[in-house]
Simulated assay, not measured.
Amino acid sequence: MTDAGADAHLVLHQLFSPAFPTGGFAYSHGLEALVAEGRVTSAADTAEWLDAVLTHGSGWSDAVLFAHAARGEEPLALSDLAAAMAQSRARRAETLRQGAAFAGTCRAVWSLDLSDLALPVAAGRAVHLMGLPVGAALPLYLSGLVATLASAAVRLVPLGQSAGQTVIAGRIALCADVAARAECAPLDEIGGFAPIIDAAAARQEALPVRLFQS
């Protein structure tokens, strides 16, 4: 639980800040392959890619998993589902390694009884254990995902810092919309259709030179 009198929203901002030590800076979610192939070359391309991640890719699925974990559902089964839905070896490592880092930090800082789980499940479980509001947590989780991936784009495309922040700002409303729909979505609505993103994540593993682990 959070300390008595602690502001829940400030705790949520700490949990889902890109500065929270999950190692997210090391992963591009397959973007590195798209940049290397000349398919993402601008801020507009980056924004389109992020929109697809949020609405048709792992952003939506992770949001649903997060919501179910935050309501206190069995976390191990949810984590197994998250790992099974990863479309490549690197993407599976991305969610499991970041989830383990997230859980380890939560154990160290707040003494939570939180096992190593896939990232969206670990994050949702932490919200449940700390008694934090799911409706406020979920859009922050998604905006943190956008900020992390936009940071990768700033380095890879490359984008200027102002362009990167403009891309992030343009996704705020979409994060809120996806979060609102995912908060009440049953598990049978999980999944999406983002073959370009999934194939790029698989091809990224075979790049002869790469900066990111996924």
Rank of each mutant, 00 (worst) to 15 (best):
A6R: 01
G170N: 14
L174H: 05
L54S: 08
V121A: 03
G57Y: 10
A153V: 06
Q213H: 14
L31P: 07
V40E: 03
H56L: 13
A163I: 01
A4H: 09
H68D: 09
L149V: 11
L140R: 15
D188H: 15
S88Y: 00
A202Q: 03
R71C: 03
H29R: 03
I168P: 07
A163Y: 08
A8M: 01
V167C: 10
G160P: 07
L142Q: 09
S143H: 14
G170Y: 13
Y27D: 13
L12A: 10
A67R: 12
R181Y: 05
P139L: 02
A200M: 05
S58K: 08
G160F: 05
E205L: 14
L145N: 01
Q165A: 12
D45E: 02
M130W: 03
A194I: 02
S58C: 01
H9V: 12
D3M: 13
L156V: 13
L187W: 06
S151W: 13
A33T: 07
A83H: 10
R210F: 11
L12E: 08
D116E: 13
I190W: 01
C175T: 13
L138M: 05
S111R: 11
F25S: 13
L34V: 02
A43E: 12
A44F: 04
F212R: 11
P186L: 12
A77R: 14
D51N: 14
T166W: 03
Y27E: 08
A147Y: 07
D188N: 15
S88W: 07
